[in-house]
Write a protein that binds this DNA or RNA. Structure first.
Lengths: 199, 199
DNA sequence: GCCGGCATCCCTCTTTCGGGGGACGGGAGA
DNA sequence: TCTCCCGTCCCCCGAAAGAGGGATGCCGGC
């Protein structure tokens, strides 16, 4: 089980240990630790937070799955832009639990994922459907978007990325088209809400 | 003790009950419940999350302090824009604990605040100092800023707020001046980071 | 071998922003 | 009272931004 908040880990342990057939075999505070501990303990299931220092939950999932293809992985997510969830799914997660859920939400998810089923709450599934209404941004576009979020003008972005202002404007056209927005400011807020970039 | 996440509440209870001289007398899942339970139980200390549904932590603090001026209040905050922290302080909080902190961070804070001292971690104090480097936005300015965050053009904002475009531009000038930024997009990101607006 | 997506460059034109100034009524406080 | 801040309106002007076109080279998949 991995989460960077000590309080949350304590809560999870308390909830899980209350079930006679469930045991927490190891606790990690970041993604890298999670990967190491998984290899050492080979648990029936990994419960991972997505936002963690050192190595993100998504990265941890990828590494665990590449080394142990049979690993069962349940993601614990708080606010989570849809982008994070989609990435975690692509990385190989089998289920999601929202941090706001009660023990009655968590325990069945653990049992389901451990026994080989998937577990995707309806609202998470809905957000994934919404997510599909826009296309994926290319790495270059995300790079440009990050600069825009920092308040840079097209000319400045062109200078830092060593391209012309024309190209920056083209990327921006593409970004706004994909996100279905008309101005750069909204492109930034939409991207933040979807978890494409962070502030 | 109040937090909207069941898992967090469970963790807090576990950590606090482990101390022989500390007891959790009541748990609330939102701000309104927190105010009610405080009035019923009159605890030595209230441990409150800032971001809660129904009624925010800050509102809860205000109401508790206005009814029970001697109430001792410790705030539990996760990421927290500086604005939230400053508001909580003005509302009458006596201390702050970061959600990432361990039991060794939480317990001394509880004891300190309960016994009448303040408890402000160094990094929180630093952020407050940073916060003072910009002036407070007026209600009208925040209203304009919210529209800007939604991607509205000055002309559109003027229409929805029933003022002229000149006035919108003037507010925007003032906003950018106060936040020390040069373009509207950066004004939005700066305001979000500081907790002045949300997305 | 062709097609699509990515990244790049280029041009034009209209609209919007952003910065500078000036002005006024109203309310809160020294 | 006088002053400061808020909210409002107004003007000018240069610099961005956004929308429309067209064009090239490269890579990977069918």
């Amino acid at each position: 089980m991995a989460d960077d908040h000590f309080i949350v880990r304590t809560g999870l342990v308390a909830v899980i240990q209350a079930e006679s057939d469930l045991t927490v075999v190891a606790e990690a505070a970041d993604g890298a630790e999670a990967v190491n501990l998984f290899a050492r303990h080979r648990p029936d299931l990994a419960l991972l937070d997505l936002r963690m220092p050192v190595k993100s939950g998504t990265q941890a999932i990828e590494e665990i799955r590449s080394e142990f293809p049979a690993a069962r992985i349940l993601v614990l997510t708080a606010f989570s832009g849809d982008e994070d969830i989609a990435k975690a799914l692509r990385a190989g997660a089998h289920g999601f639990v929202l941090k706001s859920s009660t023990g009655e939400g968590l325990i069945p998810a653990i049992r389901a994922v451990a026994s080989g089923d998937a577990w995707i709450p309806r609202d998470v599934a809905t957000r994934l459907a919404v997510r599909q209404s826009y296309e994926e941004l290319t790495p270059r576009e995300i790079q440009v978007l990050r600069e825009i979020a920092r308040g840079k003008a097209n000319k400045e972005i062109a200078a830092t990325l060593a391209i012309t202002e024309y190209t920056v404007k083209d990327h921006l056209k593409s970004i706004m088209g994909k996100l279905h927005v008309a101005v750069r400011t909204e492109a930034v807020t939409a991207a933040v809400q979807r978890g494409i970039i962070e502030l």
